[in-house]
Design a protein around this nucleic acid. Structure first.
Lengths: 181, 181
DNA sequence: TCGTAGTTTCAGGAAAGATTGAAAGCACAA
DNA sequence: TTGTGCTTTCAATCTTTCCTGAAACTACGA
């Protein structure tokens, strides 16, 4: 519903819009599968492929959601650090832009999920283990052992992911490529 | 609500039960966060720490869920390959037992999520890229480029995860430990 | 201080997802 | 073939989560 197409035909523009819509829809679906609010994933997708920062009203318009909902999801994404709000000088409206670098995105998501989900799980496992390791009886020993194995596994994962999330893409990528060969 | 405690006091048994319940609850909560039905995660937790195979009725009793629901979740877990049903000879009731090896569990989950979530996403990205790579105009070029970067990243991940999920734990673990140092 | 432009909050409606319970289905033994 | 013991299915219901819209709030300029 706009005016200027720097180049290409109207058909091209329609095709581009269709591809964008498909992308946003699918990214949203993928978000759901990973336990992320669909709209939040869509807002993220939209900002990720936008060539310029967008306002709350732009989001409302594109995704057909209410102002309240747009605002909530934008804030949440800011909380993750996946987007940031900027107020262009002279204006009062806030504009949002996404981190576009895939590797940085990956690092952010890894760090956050580690913090929000793996760490708490480790805490619980540690607790379960400590509360049962001194108990006698086959049942208790088996439980304690299983819980310990789980905990050690998650701690190893946590360590590896921390290390990866701290690395530069430039250090990981060539290594990954070699390793995959 | 049972009889024989091979060793230890009644207090010990209560403590063990409390720890088990805590574990099941928390594993369920963690499942939710990762986009997995809470009950399914709890059934998995229950079987993971059980020293013997359990029947549908055992699950119903422990988790206080209906027969239908227990059945659905057991089937789903079988679908993932995380548990298997066995019919002890001479009996007609099906018993379920979980894969207890953490590394194998991790491989199964990795493989399944790759198949169910990463592969479809790659397909969509490929499609978006192909539909726009020949279009003219700054917008189209930017979109195409971003989508391509995403796709390449996911394909790299897919490759790495495939490789890891095919490995023996014995090959990864020492390497991980060294790498973490 | 008031008015304006914008943002945030939240009660309640809507949609999605989980759970039940009961009926239908299945497999085997008598 | 009928009966028994167990599993599966599915409409109905309950729960959770999402989403809206409107009111409250904030920041700033005149």
């Amino acid at each position: 519903m706009k005016s200027t197409f720097p180049a290409g035909s109207a058909g091209d523009a329609a095709q581009l819009q269709a591809a964008k819509d498909g992308f946003i829809t699918q990214w949203g679906a993928m978000g759901s599968a990973w336990g992320i609010n669909r709209t939040m994933a869509q807002v993220h997708a939209l900002l990720m492929i936008s060539t310029k920062p967008l306002t709350t009203d732009d989001i409302m318009e594109e995704l057909k959601v209410s102002r309240g909902h747009a605002n909530t999801n934008l804030r949440e994404l800011c909380g993750w650090g996946l987007i940031r709000g900027i107020i262009p000088k002279g204006e009062r409206k806030e504009n949002f832009e996404a981190e576009k670098d895939i590797w940085k995105m990956f690092c952010i998501i890894t760090r956050e999920r580690k913090r929000r989900e793996i760490r708490p799980a480790i805490t619980v496992l540690k607790d379960c283990h400590e509360r049962t390791e001194t108990l006698k009886g086959g049942e208790a020993v088996a439980f304690s052992k299983q819980v310990k194995a789980l905990r050690e596994f998650l701690e190893m994962m946590d360590g590896i992911l921390s290390k990866i999330a701290r690395s530069e893409q430039s250090k990981i990528l060539p290594w990954a490529l070699k390793w995959l060969s």
